[in-house]
């Protein structure tokens, strides 16, 4: 059982929790992930570590309520317990002095990109941040990102804040204006795919952190397999970071749709159960 110490709403349907997990905080490194099982009837959902504090023995997760499991998670309150949190899993990010690094965080991807950005900055890189969301109210951790980047470009699809446009618009400008040694992108698959499209053109090394369907998180099921170049990789133990210029995003997108119908069914049942409960009161 993992206790929830703090909970905060970051944006509509996006929440943040600080969890008491000293055994995870002690070993966690930027870029690694967790498997969360909200309750004993739950499924194992992979979730990137958004932050950790070794001294306090805490870890931070950021989640978007999209399906039943993330809604179950979002329904928990401070003082409640999450049944199981498994981690840290996966390989940590490669952190070294690359030179100029661009970090791109889209949507909820801003959370996992944050600890990586902090480490890259601490390693002496010149760090350019690009964050993006549909609208400015969905963009969170703005000050945190500003505190660990040398330059920060904030993009919104609708122009409600920052600059109007996609993260790729800002990325193109940055790549056109200077030598960039590495791009690291975390966000929805279409965003990472678009980022990789831009870096492939310029020949810039690009790392993406993938979040495919996953059950075990430890190399025993292969549900998370993705194609990187000609090779099939298991995201859980060979990733989650891969060469963005060589990931088969089309295949990843299709595999992510495997349980779309089941997810819809589970969500519909949850919503109708809530409605029934509401009618009783």
């Amino acid at each position: 059982m993992i206790r929830i110490l703090e909970k905060e709403q970051l944006a509509p349907a996006i929440g943040q929790m600080v969890l008491q997990a000293p055994h995870i905080a002690r070993f966690a490194r930027a870029g690694q992930f967790l498997i969360v099982l909200v309750h004993e009837f739950g499924e194992r959902i992979p979730m990137t570590i958004a932050d950790f504090d070794r001294e306090a023995g805490t870890i931070t997760i950021v989640y978007q309520e999209v399906g039943k499991s993330t809604r179950d998670l979002g329904a928990l309150r401070v003082g409640d317990a999450i049944a199981h949190v498994h981690g840290p899993l996966g390989r940590p990010s490669e952190i070294e002095k690359f030179g100029t690094v661009v970090v791109v965080g889209g949507g909820v991807g801003v959370a996992p990109i944050f600890p990586i950005t902090r480490e890259l900055e601490a390693a002496g890189n010149h760090v350019v941040g690009i964050t993006g969301a549909r609208s400015i109210d969905l963009l969170f951790w703005r000050e945190r990102m500003r505190s660990v980047t040398h330059e920060l470009f904030e993009m919104t699809d609708d122009g409600s804040g920052g600059r109007k446009g996609f993260v790729t618009d800002a990325l193109k400008d940055v790549l056109a204006s200077r030598q960039v040694d590495r791009v690291i992108a975390i966000g929805p698959v279409p965003m990472m795919r678009a980022v990789a499209g831009v870096t492939r053109e310029s020949g810039t090394p690009c790392v993406v952190s993938l979040n495919p369907i996953m059950v075990c998180g430890m190399g025993m099921c292969g549900g998370c397999r993705v194609k990187e170049g000609e090779k099939t990789r298991f995201t859980c133990y060979e990733g989650p970071e891969f060469d963005g210029n060589r990931v088969d995003f089309a295949e990843l997108t299709e595999r992510l749709r495997t349980y779309k119908l089941e997810e819809q069914e589970a969500l519909a049942r949850l919503i109708s159960a809530h409605e029934e409960a509401a009618n009783v009161h």
Binding site: C216, M220, C221, G222, E262
Partner: peptide
């Protein structure tokens, strides 16, 4: 890597450990 192609480990883990045969009572599809 087409959807619907499983390793036996994944298939059996979903059913045995995660009780997917009782979906949606158990959340694993």
């Amino acid at each position: 890597n087409l959807a619907g192609v499983y390793s036996a480990n994944e298939y059996l883990t979903r059913v045995n450990l995660m009780k997917a045969f009782k979906f949606p009572e158990y959340a694993t599809p």
